[in-house]
Design a binder for these strands. Sequence first.
DNA 1: AGCACGCCGACT
DNA 2: GTCGGCGTGCTC
Length: 714
Amino acid sequence: MTLYAEVILSLPLDQSFSYSVPESCEKRAKVGSRVLVPLGQRMLTGFIVRLRKRRVSPEFELKEIAEVLDEEPIFSISFLSFTRKLCEYYYSSWGELLQASLPPSFILKSKKRITLSERGRAALRDEDLSREETELLRFIQKRSYSALFLKRKFRVRNLSHLLSRLEKKGFILIQKEIAKARKKIFSAAPMSQTQLEIDFSLDAQSREVADQITRRMEKKVFSPFFLYGPPEKREAVYSRLIKEILASGCRVLFLVPEIALTQTLIERFEKKLGEKVALLHSQLSDRKRELEWRKIKEGEVDVVVGPRSALLSPVDHLGLIIVDEEEDDSYYQLESPSYDARKGAWLRAKHEGAALVYGSALPSVEAFYRARKGKYLYCLDSEAREAKVEIVDDRLERGLISSKLEEKISERMKKGEQILVFFNRRGYASYLFCSRCNYISRCIHCDIALTYHKKEGKLVCHYCNYSVVIMNRCPDCGSRMIRERGTGIEAVEEELKTIFPKGRIALFTTDLDKREQERILRNFWTGKIDILIGTQLLAHQVELPPASLIAILFPETILTLSDYRASQKTFQTLSLMMRFLKSGNKAEVIIQTALPHHFSIRQVALEDYFSFFKEELKLRRLMNYPPFSRMAEILFQGENLRNVARKSREFSTRVKSLEGDVDILGPALASVSKVRGISRVQVILKARRKEELDKVLRESLKTIKLRKSVWVYE
DNA sequence: AGCACGCCGACT
DNA sequence: GTCGGCGTGCTC
């Protein structure tokens, strides 16, 4: 009797494909196994998600599975159902998510190899060929190439046309081959005996919290916790919980923000937890990643530490998931397959009956609200400190650096103390314009003005990196009256260098490469820099030597973003910066702003998260933003705006025609309406509950055939 | 996604 | 007439 398999492929489709299982594969074809299957002209790696004894749709002949790639299923049933839930929640493709959870070498697919034939060689000599034909045949003279490579190399739109023509004429050979899977390497690493060195120094309050959580954890049913408190105390509680869970024979998943996994943290973890920990991070090579994946799969690892993608690692017997620094947005993957690892952790813990611990000193308003409401908030008091914070009203100032700030910096410099300056805009000026004809240089690929980078003498697009050498005449009217508008961080540096010519001043931005960034940090640590000026990148550093003066310039660059979370982002970023303040009452912070009365700036100054939370929550309630509603942002993208606009209108009409209590905003051009030549139109949906969004979105997304991304905010 | 097919203007 | 650009629709 024939078996039929339902197979999920890594395509941007919300659909499975059915294949018949040939007798030779019947034993190994199991739910959760990888298979090689034919689809159209290709061979692809898919995943069996269901086996049937009878075929469902008898209308057409099914193809056979070509090969089962695994001896034992690579995905457990519970992992399959968890990932399915996760991508349903975020409207992503299940196949893409499953693929993303595996090392790249586990995915086999056919590739077309193109080789020049003898006749082709002759034709190249003797025959008259079109420009494109000659170009391609010449290119493949020396060696053969894959079709995909050629497609990228030549910007021919319809390569398959060209290739099949050449094949018909006998000029080229097209072979389909499947890259050989590397031999299975089962790293037979011996079970490590490393004793866990865990620090138990918990104060009374932390011990009480840890005990409460432990008691609930022992029941081995899903239970969420939110740990609100400073990093050292959270870490102590985590250590204790990890120990408890390990003792009970379960494993731990520990998620941290992308940027937090620096070498120092990795070393610390290794020391504390020994070899039974797998550390996943972005610098890992494919080879190393595969090795770690296998170690986790084989159960040789008890604790998996990593950024959001670690959520998808194959840990069995999961007893505890920790999501530290819950407020960090790097948990939300915006590229396909998009998902939020914070919600993902919730879903996974629920599936596995595990405990879930979020931790933060600056929780997102949404999570904090839910934790309070759901009665799973646990507070660890931080030691009150009285930082001296002063808000300087910039509207009364003339220069970039207020006289107050200048005075303070000068004082600190005299004492030989270090200063941190935060300003969140790269470049020297937002743009250049001609004061005669008002011409502004814009990016040719994106709908945005080019940012002036004085050091490089360039105008740069911050969206696609396109750049042009700076002009001294207006390209439009030829006038020399080129002016700057909008201050960037390079201008801050220039101004400070003018005021303090002897000061050792450095910039810290993403414009520097990794090595330069490290060099600057080292120099700041060793005291070779007096004033370090940086953007977000600086604020997100895990550690910096404490500074006795921190200057925050124009936080309104974040506050005026068109995002309902702008206040929260401001509060978070400024608080992050203020972590680097030296303790003791001599240290101080200056916030120089044109919005000195805004509540998020005032409450940062008071270091009062709770007041900020209450204020922000009030606004969210008034405006019906999350956590009081759920929002979905749908971004339509395409080469011609006409088509994108038409499809997005079609979509909104469809949504409106469906029954549902959903508000619809747009379609409207996205805030940057074109990026890399792709036009962008967005629609925002708002509803009381996620289910209401689902009801209309599932239906209407299917019918619109255009590249689209969906993001969920809740 | 990637691939084939079919339609249409333009150029030997 | 063919070539090559482009939109459309399907893949078990």
